[in-house]
Write a protein that binds this DNA or RNA. Structure first.
Lengths: 187, 187
DNA sequence: TACGCCATGTAACGGGTTACATGATTCA
DNA sequence: TGAATCATGTAACCCGTTACATGGCGTA
């Protein structure tokens, strides 16, 4: 699926793998992320399949920049993927819940400690998240008018992320209270 | 991580891979799932590491049942994992959001259609979910008293799943309205 | 002086999915 | 008659992570 994220960003403008990573981090990372190494590998594969082409821009005292451009074939591939509906819901995989589920014989304080740590992490994340109006996306909007439709979808995706973080925090708070009050003390 | 789910269930009683799959499906599947093939492979690995042992229970006209039992080493491994806190939040990976994010140049009706399909899937899932009081877990509770602490945690995990589904549905409804009203018609 | 940014990649490994293979029993 | 349940597994593949390798520039 990463390949479609890359194609999606390349539709706006040609870019390097490094640039793509920055775009992903600053705008889709709340629902889709990737490591640089994987981005570089995937770009190679896309090029091998003819979905993108690359040119080398020489640089001194720094590795040459390899700039990727979307081809006709790549555009068609992206369009096809976009048109294809997802016919299943995506299953959740949440390690914290797995651990909590089996923690019945753990020490009460250990469980509370773990949940409080997660609460802290999620609160921090939410506050960062709330503070950002995705800067790279904003830049794109200024450069290219006619992306209002895109902007609407971007904000819908962002909204999901915010709601999710709030849910997570509320659930942690409620669960902490429940465990504080109802979980048996270790005897 | 699957291995800890298997150990977690084996702590209650010895079981076959097939049984474990049923337990997972009926109680953790909303936040952790696995295919049978993966379960069988993982059990082999656990046995090779000495975390479980297995005995063959002969059956006629059906493959023999291989019953797995948790060892001391396995119990210690599980305990250790339970004590280890998760020091990061788990990143979300949601294909629907990725697709939506890049759908700016798609046809309005195509987008609406995809979101409506997801809404249907999530509503169906929620109604099934709300209807189930995990039967296998309930059985365990009857057989083994002293699992009230476990039951509290099970219901907390279940609660997360329910909230998540409700959030997803609300977000889909809101997003559908927004797109219906504000997304430009394809000209 | 040390950390973060820029900029590219390779190699080994891990976890998970899909497809394949077998086949009787039970229930609608 | 056909689908679901019981019951086990193997092999190929795919996606992703971690670790390794290189190294100058700007800034605190």
């Amino acid at each position: 699926m990463l390949k479609y994220a890359l194609l999606g960003f390349l539709r706006y403008q040609p870019m390097t793998g490094y640039d793509l990573e920055a775009h992903i981090r600053s705008s889709t990372s709340h629902f889709w992320h990737a490591r640089l190494s994987q981005i570089y590998m995937t770009l190679r594969e896309l090029e091998a399949d003819g979905w993108v082409t690359s040119t080398l821009e020489p640089q001194e005292k720094r590795p040459d920049r390899r700039i990727y451009t979307l081809t006709e074939i790549g555009q068609a591939g992206l369009r096809e993927w976009l048109a294809e509906p997802l016919t299943e819901r995506t299953a959740v995989k949440e390690p914290l819940l797995l651990k909590l589920f089996f923690a019945g014989s753990s020490d009460k304080q250990t469980i509370l400690h773990q949940l409080r740590l997660q609460l802290e992490l999620h609160r921090k994340h939410l506050s960062v998240y709330e503070g950002e109006l995705p800067p790279i996306a904003a830049e794109l909007l200024q450069q290219q008018p006619g992306l209002q439709a895109d902007a609407l979808l971007w904000s819908a995706a962002r909204d999901f992320g915010l709601r999710y973080e709030r849910l997570y925090i509320e659930w942690l708070e409620d669960t902490l209270h429940q465990i504080e009050n109802q979980f048996p003390e270790t005897s």
